[in-house]
């Protein structure tokens, strides 16, 4: 069947590209291949009837993770080569058994693959899951899209803690840099006119698309995290184009942006306890509360992901004076 042929070609290509990501000796190229793999995975999600995941993968999995990795890959090649040489000269037992590590690792990885294959073949082929349960209860959830009803009602607690993970990562990045805002982070020294142009037209478009994804999430694929990721991508682009973006925010505003969603869940949870349980909002107001919570997710996800980008690529705060001397072309 042609249908099946598409899947086989796609699956094969993903496996080959993943392998190339590993083999590619040049770090930068490897990262580009990783992004390509993410985009191909998005196609796989579409084939598997998971458009929400396809959007999230393209925006977060391939997009933002990829740009984080690419920025990390921009290191002095010569410095790395020297470090590699130093390491090769001094690394204990590996000197006596060159390649032993690789053989053991390959054997372990193959063993894992074999065991996983057995487990996967053993899985029952018929549906065993919560599709039915979700379909029955969806009416009471306040939204008409099953994934949103799980994320923001049935399992809203998990989503809250997930927002917490994102927040903690940002707090961790700030703590590592020993700072409370990102003003000392590196801004781009030489930006090009075309990038500035793109940043200017992208921002309003990104707001439009994010708004659309956010709004449509209640009844069709899309949703708050995807919308937030789109906005974050626009913020990152602005940063690359030399605008200040999130690194222009003061300590208080950055903190408020990072915290907004987590705090909103906390407040909604607290109010829910008067009606029954923590995070309870299944009745008439359900949809409104979900929309409000999703709006906070959009804002916090956008700010946090952009802040993670600014923080992960930045030099430490020590040379902040030098950074400040290179004033950006404009601040927003």
């Amino acid at each position: 069947m042609l249908e099946h042929g598409v899947d086989i070609v796609l699956a094969g290509s993903i496996a080959v590209v993943a392998w190339r990501v590993l083999l590619e000796p040049q770090l930068f190229r490897s990262m580009v291949l990783f992004i390509a793999m993410g985009l191909m995975l998005s196609l796989a999600w579409v084939r598997l009837a998971a458009p929400d995941i396809a959007l999230a993968e393209a925006a977060i999995g391939a997009g933002l993770t990829g740009i984080l990795l690419i920025r990390a890959a921009q290191t002095e090649a010569a410095q790395e080569a020297a470090a590699a040489a130093r390491e090769a000269a001094t690394s204990g037992w590996r000197r006596w058994f060159p390649g032993a590590g690789r053989i053991v690792s390959a054997a372990a990885a193959l063993a894992f693959a074999a065991v996983l294959l057995v487990a996967v073949i053993d899985l029952p082929g018929e549906p065993i899951g919560l599709t039915e349960a979700a379909a029955t209860e969806m009416e009471a959830s306040g939204v008409e899209h099953p994934v949103t009803s799980v994320l923001l009602n049935f399992r809203a607690y998990d989503t809250w803690l997930e927002v917490g993970v994102l927040l903690l990562a940002a707090m961790g990045v700030l703590a590592i840099h020993r700072t409370y805002n990102l003003r000392s982070t590196r801004s781009e020294e030489h930006t090009m006119l075309v990038l500035t142009w793109l940043a200017r037209i992208i921002l309003p478009l990104a707001v439009l698309i994010a708004g659309y994804l956010y709004w449509s999430g209640t009844h069709q694929p899309g949703g708050a995290f995807q919308a937030g990721a789109i906005l974050a991508a626009a913020l990152v682009l602005m940063q690359l184009a030399g605008f200040r973006g999130v690194s222009g925010l003061s300590t208080l505003w950055l903190g408020a942006g990072l915290m907004l969603s987590f705090a909103a869940f906390l407040a909604v949870g607290f109010i829910g306890t008067f009606e029954g349980e923590f995070l309870r909002y299944r009745h008439a107001t359900g949809e409104l509360i979900i929309l409000a919570l999703e709006l906070t997710i959009v804002v916090s996800t956008a700010v946090t992901l952009a802040a993670l980008f600014a923080g992960a690529g930045s030099q430490s705060g020590d040379d902040s004076d030098a950074v400040r001397a290179r004033t950006p072309p404009e601040s927003l």
């Binding site: 349960a133 979700a134 049935f154 399992r155 809203a156 607690y157 349980e277 923590f278 299944r282």
Partner: peptide, 13 residues
């Protein structure tokens, strides 16, 4: 026991 959001397992947490 405590059902978060009033949703019992298996759907809720």
């Amino acid at each position: 026991g405590y059902a978060l959001g009033g949703w019992e397992a298996p759907l809720g947490i």
